[in-house]
Design a protein around this nucleic acid. Structure first.
Lengths: 128, 128
DNA sequence: ATTACTGTATTATGAAACCAATACAGTTCG
DNA sequence: CGAACTGTATTGGTTTCATAATACAGTAAT
């Protein structure tokens, strides 16, 4: 699982967790049956309170995205939305659409915007 | 000026105002010298408290985006062209950052994501 | 049975966001 | 000069978010 928190985005941490976990389940990166990191582990890793992680997990459990097994780690549910390549690309398209609106509104040339995206993707890849 | 609030986004209202006003100034939709709607008018229009609007205006004034004239409406400030370009690229980068997180979390290859962005930008250009 | 893990409940605290109401200080116009 | 506009300061309140600490109830392994 791969989580990136944006402290300055203004979006509550627990919501960022919900959105990113939901995304990776929908995109197939997390498959039914996969175990989630424990609330203690993930909170330590992200530098947040375990109850904040638990809040996100609880909401995802209500949605059926995660399944609870008392005494054991939560797992990705079988009722989780079905992964398809079409859905995956659609979610990427949606996130790019917001950027497209900004790029056009600011009259940034296509080549420049595209170069910026490539650079950002490459630089993060190197960070790993 | 055109403001749309997303109550469910989790982003505080005052921040949505800041971001949208900043975007329209950078994009030229709001030109230096343009008068802003009064805090009372805009708050009535959006259904929020005048102090919430004022909070956004105050932050934008600190950034130099707006200029204060006691007893009169705030106006769009005059930024140096170089500063405008810097802010433009920064805003594009911010909007792309969200897409970058999504792309990486869904393991979409860089080339595919970049091609998608180019296609979206080109197809919209044709729509014009 | 004990240890080590799992998640959640509960209580308390503090910060942030938003609201409401009132008041203040400014400019402009008739 | 007064009315009508401008933005902000202040005080007090509510809700949301996040944290901290402790405790509880579960499973699995030894």
């Amino acid at each position: 699982m791969f989580i990136v928190l944006s402290p300055n985005s203004g979006v509550p941490v627990y919501r960022q967790l919900i959105e990113q976990i939901r995304l990776q389940v929908t995109g197939g990166q997390l498959a039914p049956g996969d175990e989630m990191p424990s609330t203690r582990n993930l909170s330590a890793q992200l530098g947040v309170n375990p109850m904040t992680v638990s809040k996100a997990y609880t909401q995802l459990e209500r949605e059926g995205v995660l399944e609870r097994r008392p005494g054991r780690s939560l797992v990705v549910g079988t009722l989780a939305p079905a992964e398809t390549r079409t859905k995956k690309l659609e979610q990427v398209r949606e996130s790019l659409a917001t950027a497209v609106t900004t790029i056009r509104q600011l009259d940034v040339p296509t080549d420049e915007a595209v170069a910026m995206l490539r650079k950002m993707l490459d630089s993060h890849a190197k960070e790993k």
